[in-house]
């Protein structure tokens, strides 16, 4: 399927992009995700809800529930790390975009791609340490999670959060997530939130807006 682009619009965007040096947007308040690595049953209802909402064909997956397992029979363990886009404080994706299609919202720090400006060069895909940008071959552009901005703007929560059968995925102001003070059933009374777990790229790369309740085997020493 061919996607006609408004070349004039893209040229303007590139010029603007070259004019402005990138200074990370300081959001008024940064929203982020919280996920309980242990209590997640790994059902992927969140993934499917996202695919349905965003009308994605097989291939691109904005949300990815990763299965981690280890140990040796019969002493084994398993847990899940669930990630979409982390709407990073210092997004690695954003400065790589040659057309300026990627932007960060001032209001809540959501990082989004303007699909009308994306030319499908896939640089952001390579730059993101978490595999968030997803190439959609049927449209020849890159797409990713936008935290369901339409739902947030309508006063609701993202589709994935509202899909979670276990209620272990939620969003909130990231500072509250990190200090475990967010009022949410995703966190049990004694659960402490980690910013970094195993099987995840170093958070110093982009300062991702996400927190996890880590599995004992998923904690960094």
């Amino acid at each position: 399927m061919s996607t006609k682009k408004d070349v004039k619009k893209i040229r303007e965007a590139v010029k603007r992009h070259k004019r402005e040096t990138y200074i990370p947007v300081q959001p008024d308040m940064q929203m982020g995700f919280v996920h309980h690595n242990v209590d997640c049953i790994g059902c992927r209802a969140c993934e499917i809800a996202c695919k349905d909402k965003n009308g994605l064909a097989p291939g691109p997956r904005f949300r990815r529930v990763q299965y981690i397992e280890g140990g040796t029979y019969p002493d084994v363990f398993a847990y899940k790390v669930n990630m979409s886009c982390n709407h990073c404080a210092e997004p690695a994706c954003l400065p790589t975009c040659p057309t300026g299609a990627i932007f960060k919202r001032k209001k809540d720090g959501i990082v989004d791609i303007d699909s009308t400006l994306c030319i499908g060069c896939r640089r952001c895909e390579a730059a993101c340490p978490y595999g968030a940008p997803q190439y959609d071959p049927s449209e020849i552009i890159v797409k990713k999670c936008n935290m369901c901005v339409d739902e947030i703007d309508a006063g609701r929560k993202p589709y994935c959060v509202m899909a979670c059968m276990m209620r272990v995925l939620d969003i909130g102001p990231i500072e509250k997530i990190w200090d475990s003070s967010l009022q949410t059933v995703a966190l049990g009374a004694s659960d402490k939130v980690s910013r970094q777990v195993k099987n995840m790229a170093n958070i110093e790369l982009t300062k991702p807006s996400i927190g996890f309740v880590a599995h004992s085997k998923g904690k960094l020493k």
């Binding site: 059902c43 992927r44 209802a45 993934e47 499917i48 809800a49 349905d52 909402k53 006063g155 609701r156 929560k157 589709y159 509202m162 899909a163 979670c164 059968m165 209620r167 059933v185």
Partner: peptide, 30 residues
């Protein structure tokens, strides 16, 4: 989408109690 607590009588978005839990669909339903 699925139950968000707002559809039942006296419901509101996010209502999810022990007595009247949300009836969230699984991946197949979705």
């Amino acid at each position: 989408s699925t139950d968000d607590g707002s559809y039942q009588k006296n419901g509101h978005f996010g209502k999810d109690t022990m007595e009247e839990p949300q009836l969230r669909a699984c991946l197949r339903g979705r």
